[in-house]
């Protein structure tokens, strides 16, 4: 495997991205090109701005009033922070799965149907629900009680439901912020397998503090760390196989061998 630098393969690209919370610079000068149909892991110590960068990719940072950016994020070459861009539209195309499974307190069926409905889905809803649940490897477990409350599912099932819910909106990119940190190991592995299957159709970016998970589940890995000024920065980005066996940067090496700090 070699790093593909083919420009056409980049689906979303951060150019010189700095993100501020008020006057505090949380992330500085990130240049990161995410490849289509690959799983990209973002790893790094706590507070180095992984989630911040991830949220910038679908403008979830808009909800933090103090947050603002420098630089650009290009999605298919279009700056998603350009004034004419509708952030709601961006979030439909770039879905998100959160750290804690957060299904809506509604039925399993409604959890999936709702997002599609508000996005104007006009097709056969039953079909969509079945397809997305199948894609999220949850169908067999829930097909007999789709009317059951989503909150009655196990944590791992809930997280897969959240993934299915994101798929129902037909995104191109799925952002996952530590999606397994609240799950047990088996549920974690199931999600990782699922990510692998999904990467055929979607591009996935996963933030994780579990290095084994990044190593197991991702194609590419970006390592972030913090400077003395507590601003996060990207140290190294490359094939996962290379990052975890032959990292180029001493800081990456120290972090992934567990000799950080």
């Amino acid at each position: 495997m070699t790093t593909q630098t083919n420009e056409n393969n980049i689906i979303i690209q951060a150019n010189d991205l700095s993100i501020y919370y008020g006057s505090f610079r949380a992330v500085k000068n990130v240049n990161l090109g995410i490849q289509r149909n690959k799983i990209t892991a973002i790893i790094g110590p706590s507070g180095c701005g992984k989630s911040t960068v991830l949220r910038a990719f679908n403008r979830m940072n808009d909800f933090v009033q103090s947050a603002h950016n420098d630089g650009k994020i290009l999605f298919h070459g279009q700056d998603i922070y350009a004034p004419e861009v509708d952030p709601v539209q961006v979030r439909q195309m770039i879905g998100m799965v959160f750290q804690k499974p957060n299904p809506f307190p509604k039925s399993i069926y409604e959890n999936i149907a709702w997002g599609a409905r508000i996005n104007g889905y006009k097709g056969n809803m039953d079909e969509l629900v079945e397809n997305t649940l199948q894609a999220a490897a949850l169908w067999d477990e829930v097909k007999d009680n789709l009317k059951k409350s989503a909150l009655a599912l196990s944590g791992g099932q809930q997280q897969r439901l959240c993934i299915a819910r994101a798929l129902a909106v037909k995104p191109e990119i799925i952002l996952m912020d530590e999606p397994c940190s609240a799950l047990d190991p088996i549920a974690t592995l199931k999600i990782e397998d699922l990510m692998r299957e999904l990467s055929v159709k979607y591009s996935i970016i996963i933030v994780t503090h579990n290095m084994q998970q990044a190593a197991r589940a991702s194609d590419l890995t970006a390592f972030f760390t913090m400077d003395e000024d507590r601003a996060g920065l990207m140290v190294e980005y490359g094939e996962t196989s290379q990052i975890f066996t032959r990292p180029k940067d001493k800081r990456t090496e120290d972090y992934i061998t567990g000799r950080f700090g």
């Binding site: 439909q92 879905g95 957060n102 909106v169």
Partner: peptide
């Protein structure tokens, strides 16, 4: 109301 619920909704492209 937990913020995670709002985030889930916004994350799906809800207004």
């Amino acid at each position: 109301v937990p913020n995670s619920l709002r985030q889930a909704s916004y994350g799906l492209g809800a207004t």
